[in-house]
């Protein structure tokens, strides 16, 4: 499991930049960011080197931000790399709420998966032969 930072954002000009400024001033480095947007608001999901500092800085600046446990899995950076894991999740009835990935630059990609049952997911990841990452793994990758 790794800690993901989720930020509720108004869908207005400059709001994302302003959030990034807050993180920069707190000396937080982002490894991945994805923004789910609707007409009215956005939800930013961030993997960063210092999630606790990020939450503190964002909350201080009036953002609604929280930490969410997500699965981080190292997968081969090739076609079909993630497929066996998702197939195993399906078979076990573990539901994926959302997922995104980023390349680590070492022929491996990191997939972030938000699932409805973290415990079951952790077992399946291991059984399927994947490497589950912790926050400390991400900082060095």
């Amino acid at each position: 499991m790794v800690k993901q930072i989720t930020v509720f954002l108004e869908n207005s000009t400059g709001r994302l930049a302003s959030m990034c400024r807050t993180l920069a001033l707190a000396d937080v480095s982002m490894q991945a960011m994805t923004v789910a947007d609707t007409t009215d608001y956005g939800v930013a999901r961030i993997i960063a080197d210092n999630p606790d500092a990020a939450i503190a800085a964002l909350t201080d600046d009036g953002y609604r931000a929280k930490l969410v446990d997500v699965c981080a899995v190292e997968v081969p950076d090739k076609s079909g790399g993630l497929l066996p894991l998702l197939t195993a999740f399906d078979a076990a009835g573990v539901n994926v709420e959302y997922a995104y990935c980023f390349a680590s630059g070492r022929e491996l990609a990191v997939d972030i998966l938000r699932v409805d049952d973290n415990e079951a997911a952790a077992k399946i990841i291991e059984q399927a032969g994947f490497k589950a990452l912790r926050s400390s793994d991400l900082v060095t990758c």
């Binding site: 989720t6 939800v43 938000r114």
Partner: peptide
């Protein structure tokens, strides 16, 4: 405004 405890991480909850 949602309360701080509201789980907004999943869009479906917000919707």
């Amino acid at each position: 405004e949602p309360v701080p405890a509201f789980e907004f991480d999943e869009i479906r909850r917000i919707e």
